[in-house]
Design a protein around this nucleic acid. Structure first.
Length: 907
RNA sequence: GCCCAGAUGGCGGAAUUGGUAGACGCGCACGACUCAAACUCGUGUUCCUUUGGAGUGCGGGUUCGAUUCCCGCUCUGGGCACCA
């Protein structure tokens, strides 16, 4: 029987679609399994062969779990808001919605051809009002929440206002950015609306604050920390600078500890968990206040090394620190102002490029050492960050590298307080003789007793900026009454994105939404003009899939109780500090407010590696138009130029006519040798349009079929690893599929032989274990081995072939369905139960042992499986081949490892 | 600089708890079929100075036995980067 993918694939895809065979059922008595892919942003470039890698793996698991009797939720949708569509809109004037839709259509076509078992029921796109209505709703919930440290979770603002109106701020324990001004119940009652909102803003989980943000002038928007890479924007690579701005933010910092603790229970890769731990950046230490000479205020600092308190020789503030202005003496004012000015002009990138040079200025003020009463000069320097800790440090140059560099540069005293040989404290008053560990404890106890400070845990994780000055995002459902932000009511949602005449900021620099003529509420109040960032929608989309068409709530409680956490999440590791952290934050928050039944959304996650391209380079002699074959380039000065890999044949030779046509400005190129072949140099790089090494799955499917594409992507290697794509290798899996179809010629309705069945059960055992551990490359090998073995047998039973079709179907669903229909014809193979493993079939009657002498394998010995160790040893020693290896040596020991090996140790 | 992951033939990769290193596939070589090419099929394919020896990035160690465990390096990929 011949294998014709172009006939069978469209046929079964249409059949599956008509039967809606992949629709998840709810309610259902079956156990559930939720397997999710990170949904794509539909870019204009379409899919290349690297994109579906993870989707194929998750699809195999989804299909396997269906055979295993699970009710599977395996959805797909689109992360449809985003900058590229908007940039394109700015250039062309086309509405981003229309380009986005065109891109989505293309994606769906491409994905459907691969034969994925997606449940498209929701047709979910985050840019649709039906979806973003709930993104806005979640924002309102965040706006209406504060973090109560007493209960350890987020609560509605009403519980805060209740507290304030009865007790004021007395006894209130809340997560806030700074210290809050105490407020009595009567003061609270007397607050104007503006004052009370300003007070509440300090608590709300969605709040506005004047803060230093990453401003990208080219994109005209602010960016989150994880969207800035080396001082450049992640999207587009434009310079990013620091700028103070009034911005919406989310108080993710309230969840720092829980996000850290929650990692423990997650079955995620070690490195992603480490990356998140880093990003959260917990450090333990002490906060304390230093008196300032001639000033009523104290200088608050944070240190992880309170043990070195007696090694302090100066203090350093961030240039932006609020006390700088009042501390600076008249004599130092001009130098300090000059330094502040210089520091603010340096972009983050510049500061990073040169982190060796030391700079700073003396304020003229002095802090007083709490114990020695020594005067400590107060300096400012940009190596102290305003946004971490309290923006001020006590400098201990003897035991901190940066302090040391600073002290050396400005000739400040350096005082050792730890004996380097014995690691104990010296010159440190009451700490003398203690180990570092004990000294940290003792010093904190002492400063706490003196009421100068206390133990403190500090996190690196900052609140997340939640506004973008862009058009193509979710409008923030907030209006301003006399400049005071006020939430829209949930009945007013969705707040639909207005039409605008251009997707650019206004003349006065306001975001594009300010162009909309009617951007006011029903009451006539102005609506917020910034929109939400890209990660807003993706932080909760996994919930919407559970109940995609619900118009009463984002997902019904019963649906969420049933589907629960995502059992398997497949996606790229590049989202470690963005999406994956924000989604966990939303999970914990929604769980606190009792909207979802679990805090952690993704129980088990696997990160697929990148598929790299194998670029082709032709050598061009420098300063000429001469293109050289690889072998001729040696010893000559050449430039390597990318050649589109579609112009290459399987021997890496360039199709010269098409090459000429491909380079319009090089019509007069000269080749050497003149009539070819011109062989290119190959190199593994990232797969990308600009490197002309992109392989489009459509072309692979046209030529080899979707089943071959799926098998090959898996066969390439472990899913987590990055590996280059070489289309040549595809012939291996296509010839496997041909062999499978040829096997059909030999199928008869007979009882299968024991050997035949053993092949089946060995395969089943291997594939089941492989799928559970996502080791899908070895499953493909195992299937190849089984088919090779069966191909050597004269006949194959129909029963074995049917079972094989089921085992194959998660990987190559089209061929499997074709075989199933030919042999059975009852229903789709999709929901047929998996064959049952018979462990007894795995046992052999005989075992062949490798026999080693001093660890070197010399011969094989086949023994009945029932033989015991002594019997095996006797047989080995009695074997005539042993004589030669023993020769005149003494047998010291014979090691028999049952089922495995025999090793004879000779002296 | 710090943290994490990895390194196995010409290539992608395989190897349960330490137990025949190189499964499976590509590529290559030779052969069959063919006027010929492609397809298909068969045989071989880690290296070497081949009755044998060496070999899983490098150098040591533990063990009857190490790709696997331990110690010290090198290189590659990823993350963080003045975080007090």
């Amino acid at each position: 029987m011949e294998y014709r993918p172009s006939d069978i694939e469209p046929k079964w895809q249409a059949h599956w679609r008509e039967q809606s065979i992949y629709a998840a059922k709810f309610p259902s008595d079956k156990p559930k399994y939720y397997v999710l892919d990170m949904f794509p942003y539909p870019s204009g470039a379409g899919l290349h062969v690297g994109h579906p890698l993870g989707y194929i793996a998750s699809d195999i698991v989804a299909r396997y779990k269906r055979h295993k009797g699970f009710n599977v939720l395996h959805p797909m949708g689109f992360d449809a808001f985003g900058l590229p569509a908007e940039q394109y809109a700015i250039q062309t004037g086309q509405h981003p919605a229309s380009t986005t839709e065109a891109n989505i259509d293309r994606y769906i076509k491409q994905l459907n051809r691969i034969g994925f078992s997606f449940d498209w029921a929701g047709d979910m796109r985050t840019c649709e009002p039906d979806y973003y209505r709930w993104t806005q709703w979640i924002f309102l919930e965040l706006f209406d929440s504060w973090y109560n440290l007493s209960s350890g979770k987020a609560e509605p603002i009403s519980s805060l206002t209740d507290h304030l109106s009865t007790q004021g701020s007395e006894g209130l324990k809340a997560h806030v950015t700074d210290h809050i001004q105490p407020c009595s119940a009567s003061q609270w009652a007397a607050f104007s609306p503006k004052e009370s909102e300003a007070y509440l803003q300090q608590f709300r989980l969605a709040y506005r604050s004047e803060s230093t943000v990453n401003w990208c002038p080219k994109l005209g928007t602010v960016l989150a920390n994880d969207e800035v890479v080396n001082g450049l924007s992640e999207r587009g690579g434009f310079p990013v600078m620091q700028k103070p701005m009034l911005q919406w933010s989310l108080r993710i910092s309230a969840y720092a500890q829980r996000l850290l603790d929650g990692l423990e229970g997650l079955d995620w890769s070690h490195s992603i968990k480490e990356t998140q731990r880093h990003w959260i950046g917990r450090s333990e230490g002490a906060s304390m206040g230093f008196d300032i000479e001639g000033h009523p205020q104290q200088l608050a600092i944070f240190t992880t090394r309170p043990d070195t308190l007696f090694g302090v020789s100066f203090m350093v503030l961030a240039p932006e620190h609020s006390l700088v202005k009042s501390l600076t003496t008249a004599a130092e004012r001009s130098a300090v102002d000059a330094y502040i000015d210089q520091a603010s002009k340096r972009s983050e990138r510049e500061r990073m490029m040169d982190n060796k040079s030391v700079s700073g200025a003396f304020t003229g003020a002095y802090a007083i050492h709490p114990f020695t009463k020594e005067k400590l000069p107060i300096w400012i320097s940009d190596y102290v960050l305003a946004s971490y800790g309290s923006g001020a440090i006590m400098a201990v140059p003897a035991h901190d590298e940066r302090d040391h560099a600073f002290a050396s540069f400005f000739k400040l005293p350096i005082r050792q307080v730890i004996d380097p040989d014995r690691s104990i404290m010296v010159e440190s008053d009451f700490l003398n003789g203690l180990t570092v560990e004990d000294a940290i404890k003792a010093s904190i106890d002492r400063i706490a007793k003196d009421q100068r400070g206390d133990r403190k845990v500090q996190y690196r994780l900052r609140d997340a900026v939640f506004g973008r000055q862009r058009y193509w995002g979710e409008p923030i459902p907030v209006v301003y009454r006399d400049g005071v932000p006020e939430a829209l009511s949930t009945e007013e949602l969705p707040l639909v994105l207005p039409a605008v005449d251009a997707y650019l900021p206004t003349e006065s620099g306001e975001p594009p939404l300010a162009r909309a003529s009617d951007w006011t509420s029903a009451e006539g109040l102005p609506i917020e003009t910034s929109t939400m960032p890209g990660w807003a929608a993706s932080s909760w989309y996994f919930l919407r899939y559970m109940d995609p068409n619900n118009d009463k709530t984002f997902a019904a409680k019963e649906a969420m109780d049933y589907w629960g956490q995502v059992d398997l999440y497949v996606g790229g590791s590049e989202h470690a500090t963005g999406h994956l952290l924000y989604a966990r934050f939303f999970g914990h928050f929604l769980n606190d407010r009792q909207h979802i039944p679990f805090p952690e959304p993704f129980k088990h996650m696997v990160n697929q590696g990148m598929i790299q391209g194998i670029s082709g380079f032709v050598h061009r002699e420098e300063g000429s138009n001469i293109y050289l074959s690889k072998a001729l380039a040696k010893g000559r000065k050449t430039q390597k130029i990318h050649v589109d890999i579609s112009l290459l044949d399987k021997h890496d030779a360039i199709d010269l006519d098409r090459f000429r046509a491909w380079l319009p400005d090089h019509a007069d190129v000269v080749f050497e040798p003149a009539n070819g072949p011109i062989i290119v140099e190959r190199e593994v790089e990232k797969m990308s349009k600009s490197k002309y090494n992109v392989v489009n799955p459509d072309h692979i499917i046209d030529e080899h079929g979707a089943d071959a594409l799926r098998l090959f992507e898996m066969f390439l290697g472990p899913i987590q690893q990055s590996k280059p794509w070489d289309t040549k290798g595809l012939s291996g899996v296509t010839s496997f599929l041909r062999k499978v179809m040829r096997l059909m010629d030999r199928v008869e309705d007979i009882e299968g032989s024991k050997d035949e069945q053993r092949v089946l059960h060995v395969l089943m055992d291997k594939v089941e274990r492989d799928i559970e551990s996502l080791s899908l490359n070895t499953s493909v090998s195992a299937m190849m081995i089984a088919v090779n073995q069966w191909s050597e047998m004269p006949k194959l039973s129909k029963a074995s072939m049917k079972d094989f079709a089921i085992i194959l179907s998660p990987f190559a669903p089209h061929v499997a369905e074709e075989i199933w229909q030919l042999l059975d014809g009852s229903e789709s193979i999709t929901l047929v139960p998996y064959p049952k493993l018979n462990k007894a079939m795995l046992v052999n009657d005989e075992i062949t042992y490798p026999v080693q002498f001093n660890g070197k394998t010399r011969f094989m010995l086949t023994v009945a499986a029932s033989a015991d160790k002594a019997a095996i040893e006797a047989m080995v020693m009695a074997d005539e081949r042993s004589v030669k290896y023993v020769a005149d040596k003494t047998v010291r020991k014979v090691i028999v490892v049952s089922q495995r090996i025999v090793n004879v140790v000779l002296s």
